[in-house]
Simulated assay, not measured.
Amino acid sequence: MPCYPSALTQVFVNLFLNAASALQSRLDHQSAILHVSATRDPRTLNITVADNGCGIPEEEIRRLTDPFYSTSDTPDNLGLGLSICQTILRHHGGTLAINSALGQWTRVTLALPLEADGVRT
């Protein structure tokens, strides 16, 4: 698949850090799950990163990719991670979709085109 490996690495690091943060909120850390899967159809590679952490309120999901928006209350979190991830996916001709159930799980799905014309320089 044509891509910018270092840019996609940044996407995965951010998604894993977000999932780890969500899993920290679980009272029973032994049941914390981070699941990564991939499927492929003739035109797209779909990669899913899912966790059973704290989940995200539905009204906040739309804003998660807005620059400087964050659900974290830590002062060192600038709220740029998912905004940058979305930009990277767009440069690859792909998409980023977020689904969640508050208090139960979050799933982020990346859809990346398999054709070379998807990567935009």
Results as ranks from 00 to 15, higher is better:
A50K: 15
V13I: 14
S31V: 02
Y4T: 04
A111Q: 13
F16C: 14
G53I: 03
D51H: 10
C54G: 05
V36F: 10
C54F: 03
A116C: 00
R62P: 05
V49F: 06
E59K: 12
R120H: 06
L114H: 03
C54Y: 00
A116H: 03
S70P: 08
T65Q: 13
L15H: 05
T95W: 02
E58L: 07
T48C: 09
E115H: 04
E58R: 10
G55P: 01
A101V: 14
I56E: 01
L112Y: 03
Q104P: 01
C3K: 09
P2R: 15
R90F: 05
W105H: 15
W105I: 02
P67F: 11
P2G: 12
A32Y: 07
V36T: 11
Q24A: 05
A97M: 04
P2Y: 14
G55Y: 05
V108K: 12
N14S: 15
Q104K: 15
D117A: 06
D117T: 02
P5A: 10
G94D: 03
I98T: 03
A22G: 01
I98L: 11
F16V: 10
Q10E: 10
L64Y: 04
N77T: 06
G79Y: 12
S83F: 14
L78P: 00
R120K: 12
T87W: 14
R107I: 05
T48P: 00
E58S: 01
I88A: 09
Y4C: 09
G103T: 08
I84K: 12
V13Q: 14
Q10K: 13
S31F: 04
T9K: 15
N99A: 15
T74A: 14
P57M: 02
L64K: 12
I98A: 02
Q24G: 06
T9F: 15
M1T: 02
A97G: 03
T9Y: 13
T106K: 14
T9N: 12
A22R: 10
Q10T: 10
A111P: 00
V49R: 08
